[in-house]
Computed example of a mutant assay.
Amino acid sequence: MTFRPMPIMSLLMIPALAVLIYLGSWQWQRYGEKQNAEQGIGLTETFALSVTPLDAPPQFIYSTYDGDAVWRVFQAMTGCLTDEAGEDVCSDAPLFVDLGLISGTEPSERLATRAAQVEIVGRYRDVPDGRRTMLTPEDIPERNMWYTGEAVTLAQHLGLSGAEDARFFEPETITQFALANNEIVNRRIPNPYVSIANLDNLPPARHLGYALTWFGLALGMIGVYIALHMARGRLRFS
């Protein structure tokens, strides 16, 4: 076999192929996560919290809800967890508790102050950190704004002891705050961040379809690349 690659086409092919494979893999991963979430797989047990806020500013993690920009307001706390069996687990490690969602493209101090008055009641779930992708903006730690929520990073940023064991906790229902005619309005909603299945309206089959589309485009690109080299006599198998 002889193969003489076309330089410019090959250089353009490599990053384009990498992007298509990345997008396909991402959608495939989302498909698996949503399938598991629909079956209740991966959901942690719930806890009742008995906590005390630490002397630290709230931390804002960017998210979306119903297609709109929101900031999740997390307060660092310490205290005890009561699990589903009624056992208490106490720790000095920081517990970042979600107090509410504030609408807006940037965190509003007025809405954050209102969210900070939320009483910690009900059941909470221990949730994992967010994941950074190639499209995720850079965090702005000097303004306590994060586009990828990582509990350890937030605790280290605040200089808290026990930072290496920091954890996030989300309530099963949550309050969303917004401004309407300069008045604060709020509503209680099922918390979309306790399960990846609730983060958007796309069913698992749609993610599977997107994954197959991206992988299909990658295979098509490879096919065109091979066919063009064969037509130009740059790829021969004899």
Rank of each mutant, 00 (worst) to 15 (best):
I41D: 04
I41L: 14
G42D: 05
G42T: 02
E45S: 14
E45L: 07
T46H: 07
T46L: 07
T46E: 10
T46S: 15
F47P: 00
F47H: 00
F47C: 00
L49E: 01
S50T: 14
V51D: 00
V51E: 02
T52L: 08
P53V: 02
L54M: 11
D55S: 14
A56W: 03
A56R: 13
A56D: 00
P57E: 03
P58L: 09
Q59T: 13
Q59N: 13
Q59V: 15
I61P: 01
I61G: 02
I61L: 09
Y62E: 08
Y62S: 12
Y62W: 09
Y62G: 06
S63C: 04
S63D: 09
T64I: 03
T64P: 02
T64E: 08
T64V: 05
T64C: 02
Y65P: 04
Y65V: 09
Y65R: 13
G67K: 05
D68H: 12
D68Y: 10
D68A: 14
A69V: 04
A69H: 12
A69K: 09
A69D: 06
V70E: 09
W71P: 00
R72M: 13
R72F: 06
V73H: 11
V73D: 01
F74E: 02
A76T: 13
A76E: 02
A76W: 01
M77E: 11
T78D: 10
T78Y: 08
T78N: 14
G79A: 09
G79K: 07
C80E: 09
C80T: 07
T82Q: 00
T82A: 00
D83P: 10
D83V: 00
E84S: 15
A85C: 04
A85D: 13
A85V: 06
G86W: 12
G86M: 10
G86H: 12
G86L: 12
G86P: 11
G86K: 11
E87P: 03
D88Y: 07
D88H: 10
D88F: 09
V89N: 12
C90H: 08
S91H: 14
D92K: 12
D92G: 11
D92R: 12
A93L: 01
A93E: 10
A93Q: 05
P94A: 03
P94H: 05
L95G: 02
L95T: 00
F96I: 05
F96S: 00
F96N: 03
D98R: 03
D98H: 06
L99V: 07
L99N: 06
L99E: 08
I102R: 14
S103I: 10
S103C: 06
G104A: 11
G104S: 11
T105V: 12
T105E: 15
E106L: 12
E106W: 11
S108T: 06
S108W: 10
E109K: 10
R110L: 13
L111G: 03
L111E: 12
A112Y: 09
R114Q: 13
R114Y: 08
R114W: 07
R114C: 04
A115Y: 06
A116C: 08
Q117I: 07
Q117V: 08
V118C: 07
E119C: 04
E119Y: 03
E119H: 07
E119P: 04
E119D: 06
I120C: 02
I120G: 01
V121W: 03
V121G: 05
V121Q: 10
V121N: 08
G122P: 00
R123Y: 11
Y124W: 15
Y124V: 04
